[in-house]
Design a protein around this nucleic acid. Structure first.
Lengths: 337, 337
DNA sequence: TTGTATGCGTTATCAT
DNA sequence: ATGATAACGCATACAA
């Protein structure tokens, strides 16, 4: 391994000068700095991250906390795209990404402890369950953090416009003549609350009375529970003609239930998803869905987090950004005649 | 931050003793060690990863290199499951995962350089294109590494049984009476070669002559190219009755082409995928596919890598493991009458 | 058994 | 402009 010392020896200067030259700090002559940088390049010098981190308390490493209800967030297409966007932006700025977990050596630690152990510069939080005590502990600490769809006190947040998404979905269904529009909710969360607000707002504007039996509970990405929820809706005396699913993946459960019941989509019943997963473009009939701009959410999160990190001492005020969603009409909502 | 020094001060012992006690090293009295460990726990002591890494040249961090042809490996369901399996096992052993990239600060570096910079203990390589010069550079270095579906000289490797997978697929098609079995290849790679061997072996055993026009080229996960490849097959005078797709996702392109041509699956034509992506369970007709045990591949990779790391000096011989695949019959292969 | 001292590679302070 | 030196937190060889 090539160190500052090696270069110093070769150039006949002190380690200090080499450090200054390489970091473009003042205190070295133009010409010597030039010479030092050239030999550094020739030697293939690279700094040692551990030494830098130890000395500067900056690791240029970001912790990524992706937790969904099943601890399988990587399998979640929406999270994956988001992470990809986040990663791209972070790499541009020279940050590395580390997958956060709860282990240090043989021992189980909290998220915050792991952050301290690894001296992380910041954390990207994209979870479902924001009430996890460990998350609260993290948010209450001085570790810079940015989260998606849930604001922690004192921290920046990126929202996807969940309220507007469902609002648009309902409006679209209504424009096709639907008035019996049911809503299968994902798990209890701020996101779900927002969507419910959008749902109610749309109904109100449309003059459609809310019906409690049209709002049923499921879980995000849960095919089985959404299957059951759909069956519950189908068992109603006055069936809905359109169902809003918790998300695209869970919608598979809904589709299954409809198929079981002998109903064809969209001829017999209409459905709308949420997320805009890419592969649904290839499935017929194309799912009508609320497309979230996951890549944009990831990128914006990165921007905000970098901002928080680099103004850490300045106690900048946390920012909040909302990324618009877009209704993809697809083919699963048919006009009511 | 609580350091060894703080604990030493509190216990009235030296830093060295604290270090020994905490690491359960000999050279400390039972009782003092006990006392030290208790106060360490009370203080919430955690080691400093950077300091440990600097001192010991072990970071307990593994680099993850997921590169597919589009640099979007996180979106690849197969990779995601594999990574999940890998991650679980690595965490059990106290290793962190870092997403490898080619940036250090504002500079672009090679993969190997990044490994050195971060002092990574090992790298998990799951790519499509194993001929990347940077990969070769990495493999030629002393950085422990494990790869999937491609063996680097001197390194352990986990194979998914690609040859047997396609073999089984062809045999299954043949058992349904198919003899005109086409194969749409993924990009040039060892994996593709293996699959082709399985294909030819099966045909040979079945006494079905190979037909060059039944083997066409596409790319893994490439919907558009697989769409085109399928069209090419359909344009043949003597159409195949069954098509092996490069993988499940790419199969969407094939399905599209078939739909365009007015062909119904499996009534008019049969198809078989590869991977066994979970969500295909929810799509009708259920895709017949060769299911790879991605989770197992990830876990086994972790085991082999840990082994390589911990026997680094011992120059252990690289191991090679093959994980079996399983044919999922699904509903997209119909008997020929 | 215990403690002292050194060095890992870097940055930063303070002399020169 | 340049360099000697200390310190970051830890592990370890060695002395007591």
């Amino acid at each position: 391994m090539v160190t500052l010392k090696d270069i110093a020896l070769h150039c006949g200067v002190s380690i200090a000068s080499v450090s200054k030259a390489i970091n473009h700090m003042p205190g070295v002559g133009q010409k010597t700095a030039q010479r030092i940088r050239e030999t550094a390049k020739a030697f293939g010098y690279l700094p040692n991250a551990a030494a830098q981190s130890l000395r500067t308390n900056r690791s240029f490493t970001i912790g990524v906390l992706l937790l969904d209800e099943n601890n399988q967030s990587l399998l979640n297409g929406f999270f994956a795209v988001m992470l990809e966007g986040f990663k791209i932006r972070m790499e541009e700025q020279g940050y590395d990404l580390m997958l956060l977990n709860r282990t240090v050596g043989k021992r189980t630690v909290t998220i915050l402890e792991h952050c301290r152990y690894s001296n992380l510069d910041g954390v990207f939080v994209a979870c479902i369950d924001f009430s996890d005590p460990e998350l609260l502990e993290l948010a209450a600490s001085d570790v810079p953090l940015v989260s998606v769809d849930h604001a922690f006190k004192g921290h920046s947040c990126v929202y996807s416009d969940n309220e507007d998404g469902i609002y648009q979905a309902v409006m679209h269904a209504a424009a096709q003549g639907h008035s019996k529009i049911a809503f299968i909710l994902g798990g209890k969360s701020g996101v779900t609350d927002k969507r419910l607000i959008g749902y109610k707002k749309a109904l109100k504007e449309l003059g459609i009375p809310e019906r409690a039996e049209y709002i049923v509970q499921s879980c995000y990405r849960d095919v089985q529970r959404t299957f059951e929820a759909t069956q519950k809706l189908l068992a109603l005396d006055d069936r809905p003609t359109c169902i809003l699913m918790p998300d695209d993946h869970a919608a598979h459960g809904g589709q299954l239930a409809l198929r079981h019941a002998g109903l064809k989509v969209p001829d017999d019943i209409s459905i709308i998803g949420f997320d805009g997963l890419e592969y649904f473009n290839y499935i017929s009939p194309r799912l009508c869905t609320v497309s979230q701009d996951a890549g944009q959410i990831g990128q914006k999160s990165a921007d905000l987090l970098i901002n928080a990190i680099e103004n850490k001492t300045g106690e900048m005020k946390p920012a909040s950004v909302t990324i618009p969603v877009k209704l993809v009409k697809g083919e699963t909502v048919a006009p009511i005649t």
